[in-house]
Design a protein around this nucleic acid. Structure first.
Lengths: 313, 313
DNA sequence: TTGTACGCGTTATCAA
DNA sequence: TTGATAACGCGTACAA
């Protein structure tokens, strides 16, 4: 495999001249350029990207930490990240986390070791405070509202659409409202925002018995249905953390010959469209694109993306 | 930022000794090891990954070329790739293609430039013959049956399950069978295999008027429905290239107050489960895992994965 | 406009 | 067991 040195030696010019020819810059006479180019072509030479990165001190790569590759949240945010990355000439590394703190820390270490120029946590388990000391090694971005923490962030501004959604529910006078949420509100910003909006609109906390945490998938929704039914809880409306989840709940009732409660989903998935239920579009594509721009330093600060409540489909 | 040289200088030992301490290998006395480690800790030193990669001549990274990040084919295959990569200590770079030949060629060039150790084409537009000359730069893997071409491949063996599916259809005496396929059979192995299996089972080519190409999404399925209806084609059965697509077709009929034809999908998606239609599980997860093992050189050759026809859900 | 020489940060070989 | 030194391949001030 030919190196820049070979090209220099054979062409009779110096390494720097060859380098200049390669990078199309500075003063190189046409004559020399052509002569060098001829040798480059002849030797079938191409520069080594790793050597370049080392010399430049930059990899043009961004690491993206994600949890569940199958979840629509990640799929959508990834599309946004990728399109912005492509546009900016950056490459993206996928970094699986599984909520393992050790794993997340190792990615911070890799940032420090210059494996990539920036790091996006689409989700994370370690506290933001553990990330702060690593900011000197590259841009770190989280995908939720970081509050006062001094860290770049791109996230969907869920509060307003949640309030819209709950006002819509309230105006229809439902009495027993069930909530299917992701993780515990102490860990999940989504859960916390949902509860806040609920309290804001209804002036009270949701019924604890009708509230379920840890629902992420169709199967979880189905299981929630079994829980409601077997405990005779009879919610007349259920606000789910995703259209697929709402669909799972509905299916559970249908399979038992029961009429499901009225439903609302999130994430604007096909399943919810089929069911004809209201949903919330969190525009994760835009969140991803914003996150990438933060990660490459093209912007900075907090970047909230408004989500849309969609009553009719 | 401290380098290995700083550690050597301050600890009073040589660069090589520090390197040995870092890589936990060879002969280093406990005494020296501790002494050096102390300086490493004090300087908060970590090795630079790029310099390592350059020196080792290996990046432990695999590039994955993909077309549509939202399509279940890619989402599933990606999960398989990622889990196998994690297990093997490799990292994955996402490389978007959009069927642009120039783009695909640039990834081959990047392989040559040592940007990654191996390259997986989950899909591609350039001919395999263009890839062959690049095999000397690293393992290249395609995700379809390459026939006699000397290239590593992981793919789902669709033929048998397609025959099963068509036999199932045949046994039910449908008369007007529609096919919703991806790209033209000259370009798409999937389309070609479908037509082959059809001919095998029915002893005839499918009705051209009832066959549609370029159907990839729910919307395409819906459009196919409009085509069937507005042209009065009345298929009594439609074999679609995906559950979502079949669902789009069904929805089109329903929206017009018509009874949809009987359906069969693929990819074992939620939408098909809701519809209760037969499907085919291509086990893309396994395909992805096999592709990655080929890309890192842990195996070689052609690796077909059997798909399953699922009549009842 | 071209060349020299050093820096980027490690790993690896071979001598001591 | 430790150290000097040469790769690894390229970019870039600075000199010529």
């Amino acid at each position: 495999m030919a190196t820049i040195r070979d090209v220099a030696r054979i062409s009779g010019y110096s390494i720097s001249t060859v380098s200049r020819v390669l990078n199309h810059k500075n003063y190189v006479s046409d004559e020399v350029r052509q002569s060098v180019q001829k040798v480059i072509d002849k030797l079938d030479y191409v520069p080594n990207d790793v050597a370049r990165d080392l010399s430049r001190g930059k990899t043009m790569t961004i690491g993206v930490v994600m949890l569940d590759l199958l979840h629509p949240y990640y799929v959508d945010i990834n599309v946004g990240i990728m399109s912005a990355a492509f546009e900016a000439g950056y490459t993206v590394m996928q970094l699986p986390s599984s909520y393992k703190n050790e794993q997340e820390r190792s990615y911070l270490e890799q940032l420090r070791r210059k494996a990539f120029d920036g790091l996006i946590f689409t989700t994370h388990n370690i506290p933001v405070s553990e990330m702060l000391p690593y900011q000197k090694y590259g841009h770190i971005v989280v995908c939720h509202d970081p509050g006062d923490a001094p860290i770049d962030a791109a996230y969907s501004e869920r509060g307003p659409s949640y309030e819209q959604a709950f006002n819509w529910i309230k105006s229809r006078h439902y009495q027993r409202i069930g909530l299917l949420l992701p993780r515990d509100p102490a860990l999940s910003a989504t859960s916390a925002e949902t509860l806040t909006a609920y309290a804001q609109v209804f002036g009270a906390k949701p019924d604890r018995a009708l509230t379920r945490y840890g629902t992420m998938t169709y199967a979880d929704g189905y299981a929630a249905g079994e829980y409601y039914i077997s405990n005779g809880l009879n919610p007349d409306f259920v606000f789910a953390n995703g259209d697929d989840i709402a669909t799972g709940l509905a299916q559970c009732y249908k399979d038992r010959g029961l009429r499901p409660p009225d439903l609302m989903g999130q994430d604007k998935q096909l399943s919810g469209q089929l069911l004809g239920i209201p949903t919330i579009d969190h525009h994760y594509h835009d969140v991803g694109a914003a996150a990438l721009r933060l990660a490459i330093g093209a912007s900075s600060g907090k970047h909230g993306v408004h989500s849309d409540f969609i009553a009719k489909r």
